[in-house]
Computed example of a mutant assay.
Amino acid sequence: MTFKIRPDRKETENKTIRFPLELVGKIEKAIEGKGVTFSGFVIQACEYALDNMDDSKNNE
């Protein structure tokens, strides 16, 4: 399954998180012209990561 950027969703809760500046730059470049916010991208990336985790490693 590939990661595809989708438009933003609505129901949210505020969380504070720090990102390395280099990562911020890479994300901003990736979302440029895609109609998605930084937060929207991070949410989608987290969902993708969770959906594609190797669950066998969590049981160790």
Rank of each mutant, 00 (worst) to 15 (best):
T2G: 07
T2A: 09
F3Y: 14
F3M: 08
F3R: 05
K4D: 12
K4I: 14
K4S: 09
I5A: 04
R6E: 10
P7T: 10
P7L: 10
P7N: 14
D8Y: 09
R9V: 10
R9N: 11
R9C: 06
K10Y: 08
K10F: 08
E11K: 11
E11Y: 08
E11D: 09
T12N: 08
T12M: 12
E13H: 11
N14E: 14
N14I: 13
N14A: 12
N14P: 08
K15T: 04
K15F: 12
K15E: 06
K15Y: 11
K15N: 02
K15D: 01
T16F: 07
T16Q: 07
I17W: 07
R18V: 06
R18F: 11
F19K: 05
F19Q: 07
F19A: 05
P20V: 05
P20A: 13
P20G: 05
L21T: 10
E22H: 08
E22D: 12
L23M: 08
L23S: 05
L23K: 09
L23D: 02
V24C: 12
V24E: 12
V24Q: 11
G25C: 05
G25V: 03
K26T: 01
K26W: 05
K26Q: 13
K26D: 01
I27W: 01
I27N: 00
K29Q: 11
K29R: 13
K29C: 01
K29M: 13
K29I: 06
A30L: 13
I31N: 01
E32V: 03
E32S: 10
E32N: 07
K34I: 04
K34L: 04
K34E: 10
K34R: 14
G35C: 05
G35M: 02
V36C: 11
T37C: 01
T37P: 01
T37M: 04
T37F: 04
T37Y: 08
T37Q: 03
F38L: 15
F38P: 04
G40F: 03
F41D: 00
V42Q: 00
V42F: 03
I43T: 09
Q44N: 09
Q44R: 06
A45P: 00
C46T: 12
C46G: 04
E47F: 00
E47V: 02
Y48Q: 01
Y48A: 01
Y48K: 03
Y48N: 04
L50H: 11
L50M: 15
L50G: 04
D51V: 01
N52C: 02
M53N: 03
M53Q: 13
D54Q: 04
D54S: 00
D54E: 06
D55K: 15
D55I: 14
D55C: 06
D55A: 09
S56T: 14
K57G: 00
K57C: 06
N58R: 12
N58P: 01
N58M: 14
N58L: 15
